[in-house]
């Protein structure tokens, strides 16, 4: 067990090193940072001075080492465009994205699993068919369109919910939260649904097909033959056995909810990391891009590590041997 965790952590570290190399290479290969930082009117002395100051005259490997060292301490340099430390900007923006991601992931997982179980148990019911058909829309419509349609209906037409921004936020330490105000919650509803809808339908369909598979298993038949109630059979015996593949996909999806919130954030002008990243790309703000890349990869690696540990938690067969 300990060996297994150690191995997985080592693998995660390796992945981060490789991503770090890619992030670092951007500095060298996507234009010259000196050009970006100094305007048209510059002297050769200025260029030389800045080059030495920033350490750009050192060998590649030394620069990479420095970059990693700084990155570990959360120091990603100064944004070219805003002239402020990247870590400050990210800390300022991250709460918005994380709150949005957590709420939409919660919606996607809870509703997805409930609907998945329901459609599997009532396979032939009319309501299950309606849900299955509707879910196709969730899978097939692009996110931006769903966002725009929701804005049109609930903000423009009915005027119930705000169409952009986070509403009022409260500062708790460095964390700015929208969870504590009414307007914060109202502003969160539409973006969270937009972001989570695709994952929700995906989880629902996955849970449904896994559940149908598990309900055919001998141990489910045997549980029924022992006279256990349908509720126990479905939720105690069947659902738990569907979870391993569901967790795999959910883990990956959770990562993409955070990483690819970009579209939703653009549609709703949500002041989060996605919007920051888009702007960074437009203005070739490499330190921000690099930091974002590192952040996302840390998140993916962590989620996958958690998923692997969850497997072991759920399935006793993985606990000894085999690993």
């Amino acid at each position: 067990m300990f060996n297994y965790i150690l191995k997985r952590v080592a693998q995660s570290g390796l992945v981060l090193l490789v991503v770090g190399l890619v992030a670092f290479s951007m500095f060298r290969f996507v234009g010259d940072p000196i050009d970006n930082m100094l305007g048209q009117e510059r002297t050769v002395e200025d260029v030389e001075r800045l080059r030495t100051e920033l350490g750009l005259d050192l060998p590649f490997i030394v620069q990479y080492g420095r970059f990693l060292g700084d990155a570990v301490q959360g120091n990603f340099g100064v944004s070219y465009r805003q002239g402020r430390p990247v870590s400050d900007i990210i800390i300022e923006r991250a709460p918005a994205t994380l709150e949005l991601a957590v709420v939409s992931a919660f919606l996607a997982i809870s509703i997805g699993i409930i609907l998945g179980v329901f459609t599997a148990i009532r396979r032939d019911g009319w309501l299950a068919s309606v849900i299955m058909t509707t879910s196709l829309i969730g899978v097939s419509l692009p996110t931006f369109l769903i966002g725009i349609v929701l804005i049109y209906i609930f903000s423009v037409d009915l005027g119930w919910l705000p169409s952009f921004g986070r509403g009022e936020v409260v500062q708790v330490g460095f964390w700015s939260t929208g969870f504590l105000t009414k307007s914060g919650w109202l502003a969160l509803i539409l973006p969270a649904i937009t972001l989570g809808l695709y994952q929700m339908t995906l989880i629902m369909r996955l849970v449904r097909s896994e559940m149908l598979e598990v309900l055919r298993q001998d141990y489910v038949r045997f549980a029924r033959a022992r006279g256990l109630s349908e509720r126990v059979v479905h939720f105690r015996h069947a659902l738990k056995n569907t979870l391993v593949p569901v967790i795999t996909v959910t883990g990956l999806q959770l990562g993409s909810i955070i990483a690819f919130a970009i579209i939703t954030e653009s549609v709703f002008q949500w002041p989060g990391l996605g919007l920051l990243f888009i702007n960074a790309i437009q203005f070739v703000d490499i330190p921000v891009m690099a930091a974002y890349l590192m952040l996302i990869s840390v998140m993916f690696v962590t989620i996958n590590l958690v998923v692997d540990l969850l497997y072991v938690f759920i399935d006793p067969r993985l606990r000894e041997g085999g690993l």
């Binding site: 298993q217 001998d218 141990y219 038949r221 045997f222 549980a223 029924r224 033959a225 022992r226 006279g227 256990l228 109630s229 349908e230 105690r236 015996h237 738990k240 056995n241 759920i314 399935d315 006793p316 067969r317």
Partner: peptide, 25 residues
């Protein structure tokens, strides 16, 4: 019928490897 199953009539299936839920003790 559910009250009867297991209480008065029980069944044993063919394959002991698949008749037990692998995730419960």
């Amino acid at each position: 019928m559910q009250a009867l199953r297991g209480k008065q009539i029980s069944m044993i299936f063919q394959d002991p490897l698949t008749s037990l839920n692998p995730l419960l003790t």
